[in-house]
Design a protein around this nucleic acid. Structure first.
Length: 602
RNA sequence: GGGGUGGUAGUUAAGUCGGUUAUAACGCCGGCCUGUCACGCCGGAGGCCGCGGGUUCGAGUCCCGUCCACCCCGCCA
């Protein structure tokens, strides 16, 4: 479907639109000069817009003036041309272009605007450095891959809106200037001019407001909303990011998952033209940790973990015995075909494990039916057989072992699993593996602060059957929370909220948030909850990550129009920047020290 | 805050053990070319080797510091 053109003297068609059935049609086209091929006589110019590329040919013998102008065209000039569609002879068809069956015979060219020599070429396989691309983002976004990412993002967002509307969700905006929250990430602060010395915080998420909307009886809320967290960046993380945030009343986990599965499956249908299997697979946190060593497992490949503590306890391996005696675990991972690794490769692998926090990496190889490797001699035959069976060891396989505290060992081996999966190219790149991870621990013990912290957030409900544990064994209590995982990346997370006041109070108590502090920090939510709160639950989808994966991009920066660098700066706008003294005075702010000057990098 | 990789022409990269005038491709400029589509051919210009300091007769190359970009740990309920 061609886009509507509207009323304009600039064009009758877009540049991805004309086909051989348009042969003979007189057209007006406008766009950027993508490339010029000047043959001395005939001149070819590829014109580009958002829709595609169309070749225009200028002939000196029939259109002398247009040809003269065409000879002066440079890359990225903006032009308007008048011409006639001509079907190309079979041998001149360009099958790489959607419009390759035709070309435009240019009768008139008008240069609407010129362009300076570009800092980098406008082409998909641009190898320009990211810093340069961000500085000239307006050029970077002209590259078809980047344009397609932005369009994909739009289409996913539209589809999700459409589905949420169909489910009866209302799009409601919540404040950007709000209140600092005590738990969680560092806040971005905004000074208040009207209240000297006081600050707003930008929202880390609309969490509290959306719960208040449920108390208000609006029943179902959603918002595609910017959230802010002042923490260090990663490839899949930047300080401002977008969530598809939703909350629903008289609903539990199953209701939320049903809606989200529909919304996400629809988005994937639109974005990738793929039908994903529903319902999505569900896995408990405990299973995810024991099988994959991660609470967001990438299940596109094997290399699963297997605990072999009991067998290792019957070996003669001193480190294993000590760990087992101390209540720790020994976890093994079979690497099919891994016996082929050289000694150097094994040393490198051990070093990786150590860099992940392992004390060391034990390993054995199964070759010609027997165990080889330095630690093999510490295992009696019976123990070998038991481990063989447990790990399902086959000829030519490698097994690696990590010993220590349970969660830490799982995580180390989980990371080693991802490392090997990449190194051995075991991960099918085109596959989309979606699953829910459920039954997270409600609380996590912060060893440094020596107190409980909420694993999700302080309003997450425990599972009904685990409520009594809050008084007896809080660490064992599981929450009614669920994460949506796609290809080993957390793309969504949510929970059933606490709507019973006594449970909420007990929760604050456990978190060491006193009654007064709770009132001070969350007063309006607690107030709201005391005036008839419906049971409610919700979730937020990380839009940037979802689009990144569906676009096949490497970094969320490739699906955000104007992203931040790893230092949280914007090379295009120059943000963050110093402000005038007058502005600071108006806000009652005095700097403790002035910003350091730039180090002379061009 | 910590670890790693990188920074050389407009761009992307090469540059050996420290040694003569710092290479190449693309881009740019000039010329030629009437069927290309990454057009082709000939010629040319273009460098604060990120920045500062040090070692040395001599530094793109070695050392120290620093800035920037990226990846990771910490951090991110």
């Amino acid at each position: 479907m061609p886009l509507p053109i509207g009323t304009t003297p600039y064009r009758t068609h877009h540049l991805g639109e004309l086909r051989d059935t348009d042969d003979g049609r007189n057209v007006v086209l406008s766009g950027w000069v993508h490339r010029v091929r000047d043959h001395g006589g005939v001149v070819f110019a590829d014109l580009r817009d958002r829709q595609g590329i169309t070749q225009v040919v200028f002939q000196p013998d029939t259109d002398a003036e247009a040809h003269r102008t065409a000879e002066s065209l440079k890359d990225e000039f903006v032009v308007r041309i008048e011409g006639t569609v001509r079907k190309r002879p079979a041998e001149m068809v360009n099958s790489k272009l959607a419009t390759g069956a035709i070309e435009i015979v240019g009768h008139k060219v008008e240069i609407l605007n010129r362009a300076r020599t570009l800092p980098f070429a406008i082409e998909d396989e641009s190898s320009a450095g990211e810093a340069l691309r961000l500085q000239y983002r307006f050029l970077d976004l002209r590259r078809p891959v980047m344009r397609d990412n932005i369009i994909l993002r739009h289409r996913l967002a539209q589809e999700m809106r459409r589905r949420l509307d169909a489910w009866g969700f209302l799009e409601i905006e919540t404040p950007m200037l709000t209140k600092s929250t005590p738990e969680g990430a560092r806040d971005f602060l905004v000074p208040s001019r009207l209240a000297p010395g006081k600050f707003f915080a930008l929202p880390q998420s609309p969490q509290i407001f959306k719960q208040v909307l449920m108390v208000s009886g609006l029943d179902r809320y959603y918002q595609i909303v910017r959230c802010f967290r002042d923490e260090d960046l990663r490839a899949d993380r930047q300080p401002e990011f977008t969530q598809v945030d939703l909350e629903m009343s008289f609903a539990g986990a199953d209701a939320v998952m049903e809606v989200v599965e529909d919304v996400v499956a629809s988005a994937i249908r639109v974005g990738r033209d793929v039908e994903v299997k529903r319902p999505f697979h569900r896995m408990t946190y405990a299973e995810a940790m024991s099988r994959f060593g991660s609470d967001k497992p990438d299940v596109r490949f094997g290399l699963e973990l297997r605990e072999v503590t009991a067998a290792a306890g019957r070996s003669e391996m001193k480190v294993f015995l000590e760990v087992v005696k101390g209540g720790g675990v020994v976890i093994g991972m079979r690497v099919p075909g891994g016996a082929a690794f050289s000694r150097t490769e094994m040393d490198a692998l051990s070093a990786v494990a150590v860099s992940f926090g392992a004390k060391g990496l034990g390993w054995i190889k199964k070759q010609q039916g027997a165990w080889t490797g330095q630690i093999a001699k510490f295992f009696p035959d019976a123990v070998r057989a038991e481990i063989d069976q447990s790990l399902e060891m086959g000829e030519g396989d490698l097994a690696v072992f990590v010993a220590g505290a349970k969660r830490a060992s799982q995580e180390i081996l989980g990371r080693l699993r991802l490392h090997l999966g990449e190194q051995m190219k075991l991960i099918p790149q085109d596959e989309l593996a979606l699953l829910w991870v459920t039954e997270f621990p409600l609380l996590d013990f912060d060893a440094e602060a020596r107190r409980w912290v909420a694993m999700h957030h302080p309003f997450t409900s425990p599972l009904d059957e685990d409520v009594p544990l809050l008084d007896t064994d809080p660490g064992a209590a599981r929450s009614d929370a669920y994460d949506l995982v796609l290809n080993g990346s957390e793309v969504g997370g949510g929970s059933v909220r606490i709507h019973a006041e006594p449970v909420q109070e007990r929760m604050f108590e456990l978190l060491g948030i006193g009654a007064e502090e709770a009132r001070e920090k969350f007063g309006f939510l607690l107030d709201a909850l005391s005036f008839g709160a419906p049971p409610h639950a919700g979730l937020a989808i990380g839009l940037d990550r979802l689009v990144t994966i569906l676009a096949g991009a490497q970094s969320i920066r490739d699906v955000i129009a104007f992203p931040k660098t790893q230092k949280g700066a914007c090379p295009l706008s120059g943000a963050p920047a110093e402000v005038a003294d007058a502005q600071l005075r108006e806000l009652n702010i005095r700097l403790a020290r002035t910003a350091p000057t730039d180090g002379g990098n061009k």
